[in-house]
Design a protein around this nucleic acid. Structure first.
Lengths: 192, 192, 192, 192
DNA sequence: GATGAATGAGCTTTCATTCAT
DNA sequence: GATGAATGAAAGCTCATTCAT
């Protein structure tokens, strides 16, 4: 191992964590479960090394989810045009969700199985962006008057329900088809 | 054990399978996982006996789901009035689904985790009843023209997505509230 | 495995537990620690089998100690003459303790390391027999007036202290020598 | 690190060893076990550094005991009045031992568990001071004629047996009470 | 057909030790 | 001499599955 300057060390740690997370997510995407043995082998390090970067498996899973949360939020902030009509924004949101699903099939399920879901205060989550879109749609008079929370939840559950369906049948989502179908049913559910 | 005539034997086999399935489902509903040890103990037979009726755990889980399919279909056939308006039929369908969720929270998740879903040919499933309702709604001009398959899937996924959401937060569905919310969003998605 | 009648089964279980305990104690006597792997290998069964008889390692250790408690108490009850002079009774007690030490060197230490010591109510322990001897000695006017509890503790600690000393030097106690020395110092500490 | 002259280097080495030992003893006194990770962190050096000063953990433990031996011997030499009556000297000795026990509960046990005890030739140990006291007591005609070695061992084992008893019950020794009880039993065992 | 004791691969986690820099 | 990331053997424990009776 090279002697690391403080900055290098932090960089190295971050890279290693990221590498482990990425490998974990990839394995998970295929199998729906990953043992620490297999993870270490695939990453190419000893089992103990994983534990130098994550105190236990649950912390690892949390980190993986967190990574994906950050990536998705950044992507949404960057690619959903702030002035576009709410329907279009909703469409972008849904496309990103579909893409993410195709990349990380099983992960979400496993995560939720073992981890109580505690929204981290002060952090933006995809659901918040969805709510923002819906609120704006209602304010602009494009969506009918509704409880924003409930509405977002309905959209979210419809999506994740579809993902779960595809997961169980071991199918990828065809982005265009899924997008078309979901929008076809969601828009009338939301619009005036 | 009394000597069994062939018919009695088959009857006995069927009863035993059913008893095992029922017990499994009940245990699962409470805990979200059931070891073969605990199942055997609760059923009141030896562990090996279970394996006389089911080749392995995955076959057992499949059978459990099948049992529940039968029960739900029967319930739907019996309680959804065939001449009621499609919206009302849809409402009944959804209520039954919500009830079932409250009774068997974890089962579906576990099932789906380990078992690829293969629709069994020639058997009516709740989804078929849902499709029938939707087709009738379209035929009667109450629901807008749509691909029946896709429409049913959207309804189904919205429901199961919501169930998964509740499951992960360890909450029961309040039947009235959930019913109200789902219908509030689903009807505009389906109706003309 | 033979089909076991209920009595045979109980017998078998008892034998197996005893065999495991005995093996554990023997290994322990040599090494001062025993892994479940090694225990299973030495007993000649699979690791899981051990766990069919003891829920975890701590239960096993407790059982081992309990077995020894019973054996020692029985031996003491059987061999310490109830009418002999208290000094002689004390001598017998000490000889039995020395013998036991020679047979089970490390066990006691390990046991005490991981298990809080909770005297089991209603069960006679060697310490109780020691107290009985001391109380009788005081009543008969052979031992000087003392708090029985404190006196027994002093005797016991002197003994176990010596055992520990031998243990650490990896020596057996020579029964005659140890007996002679301990009595030489203990009797003046107790007698009138 | 400044460049060290040979003497400085040795000094530095000795200081470092002492710092590590002291830290180890302090951590051990609280928890009853210390990982090399935690030790290094508390000392404020890297884990590998510890291994530059001690070849392995067992050597470290040995050194820690040695340090404590030195401290106790110094304390005894300094505080036990050389002309006081032997009973009084014995009392001081015992008080110091009790104090040490209260400060370093777990260390002794751990040490003894993994390390065969080899008396280091040419070094004064607390036991030697005890023997000196006893020999003087016999010479002055205050203690009865006895083998000094055996007598000291009896005293020592009675003490450490009591310490072990307290350790297992997770209790501190109340200095006054323990002192009183031990002297109450030991003096008659030793005196004429 | 029923039994349940035995199995053993598999899991997560710990930690003393090494060694390239 | 100092570093600390990497190591991997070893631990306790679980549980679906088998098979001799």
């Amino acid at each position: 191992m090279p002697r690391l300057t403080p900055e290098n060390k932090e960089l190295h740690t971050a890279e290693m964590r990221e590498k482990i997370c990425r490998t974990f997510a990839e394995l998970f995407a295929v199998d729906g479960e990953v043992s620490m043995d297999r993870l270490a082998e695939t990453v190419g390090v000893a089992k103990g090394t994983i534990y130098n970067y994550f105190k236990d498996k649950s912390e690892l899973i949390t980190a993986v989810m967190e990574t994906r949360r950050v990536i998705m939020v950044e992507l949404m902030e960057r690619t959903i045009p702030p002035d576009a009509p709410p329907e279009e924004q909703l469409g972008s949101f849904i496309r990103i969700m579909i893409d993410d699903f195709n990349r990380h099939r099983h992960l979400r399920t496993e995560y939720l199985r073992n981890n109580p879901v505690r929204p981290v205060p002060g952090k933006i989550r995809p659901g918040d962006i969805l709510k923002r879109i819906i609120r704006r749609g209602i304010d602009l008079g494009v969506f009918r008057e509704n409880d924003v929370e409930e509405t977002a939840l309905f959209v979210f559950c419809s999506l994740t329900g579809k993902f779960r369906y595809l997961l169980l049948r071991n199918r990828d989502a065809d982005p265009e088809t899924e997008y078309r179908i979901i929008m076809h049913f969601l828009l009338p559910a939301l619009k005036k």
